[in-house]
């Protein structure tokens, strides 16, 4: 084939352009570690990478949500255990009031019981990350211990009111799956969320007040009837403790279930990242070899061009 002077240079320019473009691509891949530098590099791989990105983001969000909820469950478990302990202490206190050694100390025990009641209310107002754990979907301290007008049934006038609601606060740790996150107050504390507190107030009234509603003087013993009434309150309180313990156990079971789920999600994430990496990340060894090959080819081309392009018959004339 006849080769014109201009075409020798055009062909050399085209070959140089091609090689330099390839070299630039290899350099970019090495510098960024990304195989896909442009959308058009490999559309099939791009589609897979974009899908993997979406799944990774979703799974990470699920994992993070689960971690957040698990922390709340841990706090919930801690606080229900605390409630259970508080109830146990109250039951022990009432048992002490019935003990023969303490017949003359009901007023003193009543005072300690009052402190326990305050502690119980404080525990029932437990919060975590801005939520009151037993307030339902309300956003204020749900339990308040207040003193109302004294009556024959409630000579102390002590009353615990519930300002929360009995709605379940839900969350969706996994796609499409709604889970109740909060514990309803009536599950823990009985009807209206205050039944348990009513029992403690009743015990307090028995210890601190006489049957006629007057305040019990220090060192005055309980009557046989009052002792009988107090005796009946203890199993009721312990029944509440059992109820709280059941909630604690259920919470622990959920925590364990979510822990398994979290581990599965972490494993899934690792797999997704591996799938993504296969398409999106540059094989650095291969790219380095390609770069070396390209550099060698470029060097050879430049040497060839420097020899061939400078030769002409005119040089011999």
């Amino acid at each position: 084939m006849r080769v014109s002077w201009a075409y020798r240079f055009d062909a050399a320019t085209a070959a140089l352009e091609r090689l330099q473009t390839q070299l630039l691509q290899h350099q970019q891949r090495l510098a960024t570690g990304q195989r896909l530098q442009q959308l058009g590099d490999d559309p099939a791989a791009l589609a897979r990478v974009l899908r993997m990105d979406e799944l990774i983001a979703q799974t990470q969000r699920q994992r993070d949500t689960l971690a957040l909820l698990q922390q709340e469950l841990q706090a919930l478990q801690l606080h229900t255990e605390g409630l259970s302990d508080a109830l146990a202490e109250i039951a022990v206190l009432l048992q002490e009031a019935l003990d023969a050694k303490n017949l003359d100390k009901p007023a003193l025990i009543a005072e300690r019981l009052h402190q326990r009641l305050e502690d119980l209310v404080a525990r029932a107002n437990a919060e975590f990350a801005g939520h009151y754990l037993f307030a339902g979907t309300q956003h204020e301290a749900p339990f308040r211990l207040q003193r109302t007008t004294a009556t024959a049934e409630n000579p102390s006038g002590l009353q615990v009111t519930f300002a929360g609601n009995l709605q379940e606060r839900t969350a969706q740790p996994t796609a499409g799956g709604s889970e109740a996150l909060s514990i309803r107050a009536d599950e823990l504390f009985g009807q209206g969320g205050t039944e348990l507190f009513g029992l403690v107030v009743a015990a307090y009234n028995l210890l601190a007040y006489r049957a006629d509603g007057s305040q019990r003087p220090p060192e005055e013993s309980l009557s046989a009837q009052e002792r009988e009434q107090l005796q009946q309150l203890i199993p009721q309180l312990l029944a509440f403790r059992q109820r709280i313990d059941r909630v604690t156990a259920r919470t622990a079971e959920r925590q364990s279930r979510w822990q398994v789920l979290a581990e599965q999600l972490e494993q899934y994430l690792t797999q997704l990242r591996a799938f993504r990496s296969a398409d999106a990340d540059a094989d650095l060894v291969q790219v380095a070899l390609e770069l070396q090959k390209g550099q060698t080819a470029l060097q050879a081309l430049l040497q060839t061009l420097s020899r061939v392009l400078t030769q002409s018959l005119f040089d011999m004339l």
Partner: peptide
């Protein structure tokens, strides 16, 4: 290249 083979100048 084919065009140049015919039309182009060869020094």
């Amino acid at each position: 290249a084919q065009r140049q083979a015919l039309e182009g100048v060869n020094l």
